[in-house]
């Protein structure tokens, strides 16, 4: 897959093509499914949520900044991160984006505008206003996209973040990936409402909920949302309503998940939906899709080879980069 093409496909004036959205989702899925296959199970995947990552990130401009969380592979890949360097980071190798000091949980890639990834649920929400304040104060054009889940919305700092962003007119696109699961607890056990977007209105922030398993819908909504933040220079709240198809982490057997609910969401698989749409509309042939799958597989195999053959950090790295 041509990484550079994905990156430039995020031009704010131009929508990503349906095929680019599909290929991004395929690559995210292939990357995340590869992890347990090669024995990496202490990792939080976004299987089933790929449309949210692909649709939103492709709606951002190159100068925009992204804050994400422990379930970040989709956001990273959609932004054009190299799966090889991501996997190397997950494996604790020196060629990883954070030199192996992050591991899977908090991968940042400053060069791609993916900043300050925090695994503390709500951490991204606490940092986003400051990043947006820099954009505002230093008169930079980019907006700030902050990805979090329904679990983070129950943290106190969620409310502090929205309130401050609204009051200070900070250019933040909040993206709540409402995937129904907060670690091992279903969302319905933790709140009275189905949607987080309704909360945003109370802080004076315009909001929208979109089918998070429909990449076309997510992308269209995210383009509108990002444009609003960019032009109005104030926050917008986008909720992508979706479902976490795997466990809190890969080592989790999902024994606590309602089978019927899982099956209902499996029927709404975003990759399958987009593939069917593209073929139905004649944008790609079945053969084109098969070629895409082959390309993605090859990218992931290269990534595994790169990460596997990469060295671990020198032990002297233990106490470097603590202070600037």
């Amino acid at each position: 897959m041509d990484r550079q093409r994905v990156r430039t496909g995020t031009d704010e004036t131009q929508a990503a093509t349906p095929a680019a959205l599909l290929e991004t989702m395929m690559l995210i899925r292939a990357y995340e499914l590869k992890l347990p296959e090669i024995g990496i199970k202490m990792v939080c995947t976004s299987v089933g949520q790929e449309a949210s990552a692909a649709g939103v990130v492709h709606a951002l401009a190159a100068e925009d900044l992204i804050l994400t969380n422990h379930r970040s592979a989709g956001h990273l890949i959609a932004r054009g991160a190299d799966p090889g360097r991501m996997l190397a980071e997950v494996m604790g190798k020196s060629t990883g984006y954070c030199k192996g000091k992050s591991g899977t949980l908090h991968i940042s890639v400053k060069d791609l505008g993916i900043v300050l990834t925090s695994t503390i649920v709500g951490g991204e929400l606490s940092l986003a206003p400051g990043v947006a304040l820099s954009q505002q104060q230093l008169e930079r054009p980019g907006i700030v996209a902050c990805f979090f889940g329904d679990g983070a919305a129950t943290e106190g700092v969620f409310h502090e973040s929205l309130n401050l962003a609204a009051k200070w007119n900070l250019p933040i696109l909040y993206i709540c990936e409402n995937n129904q699961w907060q670690a091992y607890v279903h969302r319905r056990e933790t709140m009275l409402t189905d949607h987080i977007s309704t909360w945003a209105a109370k802080y004076g922030i315009e909001s929208l909920t979109v089918d998070g398993n429909d990449v076309t819908a997510v992308h269209a909504a995210a383009r509108v949302a990002a444009d609003k933040v960019r032009t109005a220079r104030k926050p917008f709240f986008l909720e992508t309503y979706t479902f976490r198809m795997h466990g809190h982490m890969e080592a989790d057997d999902l024994s606590y998940v309602d089978r019927e609910e899982l099956a209902a969401w499996a029927a709404k698989d975003p990759i399958q939906r987009q593939t069917e749409r593209i073929v139905r509309e004649g944008l790609l042939s079945a053969e084109d899709v098969a070629q895409m799958e082959t390309r993605v597989r090859s990218t992931i195999e290269s990534a595994v080879a790169f990460a596997g053959s990469s060295p671990y950090p020198e032990l002297s790295e233990l106490t470097t980069e603590i202070y600037a």
Binding site: L127, G156, L164
Partner: peptide, 26 residues
């Protein structure tokens, strides 16, 4: 007023905003 600001009475977001701003140029 842009460089000398009152904030809500919420220490978490004050410190978080400082950290986010510090990492990105302020």
């Amino acid at each position: 007023a842009q460089r000398v600001r009152n904030t809500p009475l919420a220490e978490g977001i004050i410190a978080g905003t400082a950290a986010g701003a510090a990492a990105t140029g302020l």
